[in-house]
Amino acid sequence: MPGLLLANFDLDECIERLYNKELLPEIVVNALCSKVKELLIKESNVVHIQSPVTVVGDIHGQFHDLLEIFKIGGPCPDTNYLFLGDYVDRGLFSVETITLLVCLKLRYPSRINLIRGNHESRGITQTYGFYTECLRKYDSANVWMYFTDMFDFLTLSVVIDNSIFCVHGGLSPTIHSIDQIKVVDRFKEIPHEGPMADLVWSDPDDTKSDFSLSPRGAGYTFGIEIVKKFLYMNNMHHILRAHQLCQEGYQVLFDNRLSTVWSAPNYCYRCGNLASVLEVKDNGERFFNVFDAAPENGEHTMMLFNPEQKSQSLFAQPQPVEYFL
């Protein structure tokens, strides 16, 4: 394909192809990932941006719903976007989703920001579907390698208007001030423990006021006192995060000090939940724009019924008649 050669591929053409749900050649994906790494390596662990911006939570490979978000929230670059991570795994189109986001980042670097989620990791994607999808769509693990190497460069947090702290998961008992995030060495696989793990993994809990240890034996939850203290110490007003499914598409906790935004409607094509994007206006106002699953999902979930798609068996909603025992 002319214009799509390695060195100077045409980004607009790539984006166009992706909007049409076409995959890009492996060699192009490789080049895109290398390019975007050069861009991401310059970003701080805490990127400062200005409103207005539309904040998007977990996508999980639900590509049609991502396209729906651009319809609802406005196309990129007319609308500024901040994505809070978890682009891949679980949904059927992780490759298309992350490829498009990488292209948009390269094309409009100041208009779109991408934070790392706990699924942007080699370990997790091998278990939860992205690895399998790459093998299936490209017949080799190379594309998975390009993307997961690129994940190591994604930033950990964003601050909007010096006032809203945005992260994928939540707070960490080792981090009191935002400056402490800036010195974390983030260019690596997400570790099992420590500040970097906490930022992408932890969850708020409105029944406990402090940090608590999960009964699983790993992972923290944090309560209202922790949030108050963090906001006060850093002179901020709100924490914005994703990471947790909510039926209504969003949840506001701790007397409006923390919001969860969830952007995968009908999660895993079976939960029947709503989704939202959070629009932060330039006067600081926050508005949850709630939406339902894109109609295109229907056609494509039919492919779940293909018995060869064995690994997807858990995803299927109404399966064909089955002589189970």
Binding site: P173, T174, H192, E193, G194, D205, K208, S209, D210, F211, S212, L213, S214, P215, R216, G217, A218, Y220, T221
Partner: peptide, 27 residues
């Protein structure tokens, strides 16, 4: 109670960092 596979590493690092005082216990 079962524990996740990384629980051991996780607990060790917590002790190392002497974080105990800040954590109000297991949910």
């Amino acid at each position: 109670l079962l524990k996740v596979s990384c629980s051991q590493d996780w607990l060790k690092s917590r002790q190392k960092r002497e974080l105990e005082s800040k954590i109000s216990g297991v949910v």
